[in-house]
Design a binder for these strands. Sequence first.
DNA 1: AATCTATTTAGCTAAATGCCTAATTAGCTA
DNA 2: TAGCTAATTAGGCATTTAGCTAAATAGATT
Lengths: 124, 124
Amino acid sequence: MLDMKQKIKIFKALGNETRFLIFKNVFTGGYACSLDKKDTKVKVSPHATCVSTIAEHFDFALPTISKHLKELREAEIITMEKKGNKIYIEPNIETIRELGGCFSTLVNNFETNRELFFGDVVLS
Amino acid sequence: MLDMKQKIKIFKALGNETRFLIFKNVFTGGYACSLDKKDTKVKVSPHATCVSTIAEHFDFALPTISKHLKELREAEIITMEKKGNKIYIEPNIETIRELGGCFSTLVNNFETNRELFFGDVVLS
DNA sequence: AATCTATTTAGCTAAATGCCTAATTAGCTA
DNA sequence: TAGCTAATTAGGCATTTAGCTAAATAGATT
């Protein structure tokens, strides 16, 4: 279950246009890493991409994209797995599914039970 | 339909602990404005609250809370309606429902169609 | 009209964010 | 081993954000 801190991290991560677009592109698989095809030793999803491939599509320096990816990973909405000297990036569908579930619960229980979405949050 | 800018605004709004908690409290109706009972002229939801009532529950100055509420309103996840000299605040359930729907679509269509959530976003 | 209550605006400061370049680390290849 | 590719870390700078107090606005009440 996502706790409050984690939800806030996710919202903060997606509340920036650059990160939103990076996430969009990772999620839609639009930037699949062209090098994958040559690299037969490494087994990754055909949608997986890597840091430099993402950076090619933005007008920002590589370290900037790297930092944004770190934030998306810490929010647990993407995964980053090192294979060889590259890092393969994929969406973390489980976290997104959970968050979606929270919203559904929230909406479905509106009026009858307004507490569910916020879970562990204790009123001050 | 929520466009990209609007979604980013919502995420940014909820990506701050103070605003998240304000929204939580508005949504759950935990801070209903006690003055409502006396004020028989004004018709509002028994869950509705007002700026100063919210501020009472936080260790921040009133103008700080006012500014946060403005941001939540601009993200269209709460409504603020002036009646008399108070502003009554309620959650905007429609926006939350829409956002939840986006997440459901996103998750349900993962793999088969990764584009739906992002809608109007054009790949650069 | 004068005052009271509710809220916002203005203007300030400290801290966080988002970007950069240069340097470093890690793994692969010749 | 030397050099190449991929990514991160370090350090700096400009902008934004999140808080504050004081002052202004708007509606009620006396």
